[in-house]
């Protein structure tokens, strides 16, 4: 009785080159390639919305209620050129960045304590549970009494809005780092701060980045709201004050220009800053598809 046999495939036995290899990889059509870029799709969407705005506002023809896009853009341009908007943006950004950086640093200290000590964990968990649901803006009246009508009140409120969001996400990220990676870190003899910075922070980076994004959005909203509600709080007002002031003057296109500026800055930070960080970190590392 014959044993098992191996029968080779035809093109192996004839030793012929694979003639159809070219079909394994084919280029996509150029339209498909362009539509594959999300930035292109989003830009198209924005242009469509802009056209709808322009058409509807022209039809409404009431600049006091709803100015056209072209009016808004003209006002935006004028205010930029005469220097009002840049100085307002600068005032707002200064306060914002101070508060954001301070809040993030505090969050870093709290989470490092929390991951290394049990009392730190309890402290962080209790504080986040208490203060995270508390709207930052509700602390502003108190802050104004404590710190007076100045940037320091705003910074205080900003820290409150950034701190808990960033700390909560970072801590959750640290806790979610797989046991294997923790053991690898221990195997290398890493402890304390070097363990946190070299293993936990990069391993938890997706959560940390989410926390930073949420913190940024909270800070931005809180600051504009604070300026709107309490008006000018230092020598010169920021963007929120610009919107408030022009509403009082019934310069509605300028109000829209102010709002548009807020949106544009938000878009720039989201799309340029955070997405660049994301592309160079978690996307490159395969932590996000």
């Amino acid at each position: 009785m014959p044993g098992p046999q191996i029968i080779l495939a035809a093109d192996v036995t004839t030793n012929r080159q694979h003639a159809n290899v070219a079909e394994v990889e084919q280029r996509l059509g150029s339209l498909e390639l362009i539509l594959g870029i999300s930035a292109v799709r989003k830009t198209v969407l924005i242009i469509v919305l802009a056209i709808i705005w322009q058409v509807y506002a022209s039809y409404l023809d009431n600049p006091l209620l709803f100015p056209t896009l072209s009016d808004t853009l003209t006002t935006l341009y004028d205010r930029f050129v005469d220097g009002t908007l840049p100085s307002r943006i600068w005032t707002t950004l200064q306060v914002l960045i101070t508060g954001y950086v301070a809040g993030t640093l505090l969050a870093a200290i709290l989470t490092i304590l929390a991951i290394n000590t049990r009392i730190g964990t309890d402290f962080l968990e209790t504080m986040t549970a208490m203060f995270n649901p508390l709207p930052a803006i509700s602390l502003l009246p108190l802050a104004l009494i404590w710190f007076g009508l100045g940037a320091s009140s705003l910074v205080f409120v900003l820290i409150h809005s950034v701190l808990w969001a960033v700390a909560l996400n970072t801590h959750a990220g640290f806790l979610g780092v797989s046991r294997t990676l923790r053991m690898v870190g221990g195997n290398y003899g890493l402890t304390g701060l070097s363990y946190v910075t070299r293993i936990l922070v990069p391993a938890a980076f997706p959560s940390i980045l989410t926390g930073l994004k949420i913190g940024w959005a909270f800070a931005w909203r809180t600051l504009i709201a604070a300026e709107l509600v309490f008006g000018v709080s230092s020598g010169q007002g920021g963007l929120g004050w610009f919107i408030f002031e022009n509403r009082n003057l019934l310069d509605i296109p300028a109000v829209f220009a102010g709002l548009l500026t807020v949106i544009i800055i938000g878009l720039i930070v989201e799309n340029l800053v955070f997405q660049t960080i994301e592309r160079h970190t978690i996307q490159k590392w395969g932590m996000k598809e």
Partner: peptide, 19 residues
């Protein structure tokens, strides 16, 4: 305690640092 004189190779594929 853990130390580099005893290097571990784990079963899990996520033992490499993804970054």
């Amino acid at each position: 305690k853990p130390g580099a004189d005893r290097m571990m190779v784990f079963q899990e594929f996520d033992q490499l640092l993804p970054w």
